[in-house]
Design a protein around this nucleic acid. Structure first.
Lengths: 215, 215
DNA sequence: GTCTATAAGCTGATAGAC
DNA sequence: GTCTATCAGCTTATAGAC
C-alpha cells in the first residue's frame, strides 16, 4: 500500500489508455483526499500516491498545497451552485422547487466530495472561499432571494423569510452528502442506497411545498 | 501572542479566582481549538497556550491527543442529544416540535463549538464517534422515530417518513451553528445577530409544522 | 504534580540530475 | 518535464529534574 508502482519513466509518449493531462488527474485525486481527510489531514504524499506520481510532480503543477486546494474549491463551487439558476420568477414553485430539491440531492449522491469539501470549508471559517468566491456565492444567494420574493408577491407561496428558506433548502438537501455516514450508521447500513435518496427527496419536497403553502 | 505568561509555579495552592481543576480547563480550551481548526489542525501547543500551561501537562492529564479528543466528543454528544428526549408520544407535536426546534437552534447559538465539532466528526467519517457512541446515538434516533410514528397513528401529523424527518430537523437547525460563517457572509454581517436566530426558528417551525400537517 | 529538554517521525517545499 | 534526494520546520510524545 505504501510503495506504489512507479509508472512510465521517459519511455512513454502515448500509453495504452488515453493519457489524460497529469494536472487533471491530480485535481481529481486531490478532491477525494481532501474530502476524506480535510485540508490539514491531507498530505501531498497521499495525493501523489493516489495518482501514482512522486510528490515533487504535484508541486511542479501546483506551486503549493494551498494553491492546489484553491483550484479544487473553485471547481466545486460551480457544481454546488449550478441548479439554483434554474429557479426563476416566472416558473411556478410547484414545478421549480421539486426540481431543485431533486437535482440538489442527486448531486449530493453523485458528487459527495463536492458537498463535503464545501461543508468542511464553511465549517472551519470559509478561509479560502471568502478570498476568491464570496462575491459569486453572494450574488447567487441574492438572486434566489429575489425569486422567492417574486413568488410571494404573486401569491404563489406564503409570506416567509426568503433568506432563511434558502438556508433550510441548502442544509436539508446537502445533509445527504455531508452526513451520509451519520445517516447510514443510524439506518444500519454500510452506505446509503437509492431508496434512501428518493425517500429523502420525497420528504423534503412534501414538507417544503406544503410548508410554504404551494397549491 | 506566542509566549504566554507562565502562571503560578509552586507558589499557589489557592489563587484569587476559584481554581478550577486543570483537567476541566483543558477540556474547555480543547473544545474551542478543535472546533476552530479541526482535529488535525489543532496542536497540543495551541491548547496548552490557551490554558497557560506547558504542553507536557496536557499529556499528563490526557495520555494522548486522541484520548483528549474523545473526551471532548463524549461531552458534546450529550449536549447535542439532550433536547430530543423531551418529545414523547403523549405531547402534541404542535407543542413538542416548536419547543425542540427552538431549543436546538438556541443551543447552536450558545454552544456553536459543540455542533461544529460534531459536524466535522461526521463529515470526516465519524471515526471516533462510531467507536464509542454509535449505540447511544442510534438509540436516541430510534426512540424519536417511534414518537413520530405514534403521532402519525393518532392522526396528529401526516403520513411521512419519520427517519427522514429527523434528518431534516437536525440539518436545518444545526445549520445555524455549522454554517454560521457562511450565513453571516451571505447576510453581509460580521456575525449572526439575535434576530437571525429568531427568524430562523420562526421559519423552520412554520414550514415544518404546516409541512407535516399539524393543526 | 509541574515543568524543561529532547527524541523520533512526518510535512511541505526545494535543488539539481536526467 | 520528470524524478531522487534532502532540508528545515513542526508535531506528538517521553525522560527526567525539581
Amino acid at each position: 500500500m505504501k510503495n506504489m508502482l512507479k509508472k512510465h519513466k521517459s519511455s512513454c509518449l502515448k500509453t495504452t489508455t488515453a493519457r489524460k493531462d497529469s494536472s487533471k488527474q491530480i485535481l481529481m485525486a486531490a478532491e477525494n483526499i481532501f474530502a476524506e481527510r480535510g485540508y490539514r489531514g491531507s498530505t501531498i504524499s497521499a495525493i501523489a500516491d493516489a495518482v501514482g506520481l512522486p510528490k515533487a510532480n504535484i508541486l511542479y503543477y501546483f506551486k503549493t498545497k494551498e494553491k492546489l486546494y484553491k483550484e479544487v474549491i473553485k471547481h466545486l463551487l460551480t457544481l454546488w451552485m449550478q441548479h439554483m439558476n434554474e429557479m426563476t420568477p416566472e416558473i411556478h414553485p410547484r414545478d421549480a422547487l421539486p426540481k431543485y430539491i431533486m437535482n440538489k440531492v442527486r448531486q449530493s449522491q453523485k458528487h459527495p466530495n463536492a458537498s463535503r469539501i464545501f461543508a468542511a470549508e464553511v465549517l472551519h471559517g470559509a478561509k479560502y472561499l471568502r478570498q476568491s468566491l464570496q462575491a459569486e456565492l453572494r450574488e447567487q444567494f441574492e438572486g434566489t432571494s429575489i425569486v422567492f420574493r417574486a413568488w410571494q408577491n404573486k401569491g404563489w407561496i406564503d409570506p416567509i423569510n426568503p433568506e432563511h428558506l434558502i438556508f433550510m433548502l441548502w442544509s436539508s438537501t446537502q445533509a445527504y452528502a455531508d452526513h451520509e455516514l451519520q445517516i447510514s450508521i443510524l439506518m444500519g447500513k454500510e452506505q446509503l442506497e437509492e431508496d434512501d435518496f428518493s425517500e429523502g427527496i420525497k420528504l423534503i419536497t412534501q414538507v417544503i411545498l406544503k410548508g410554504i403553502g404551494v397549491k
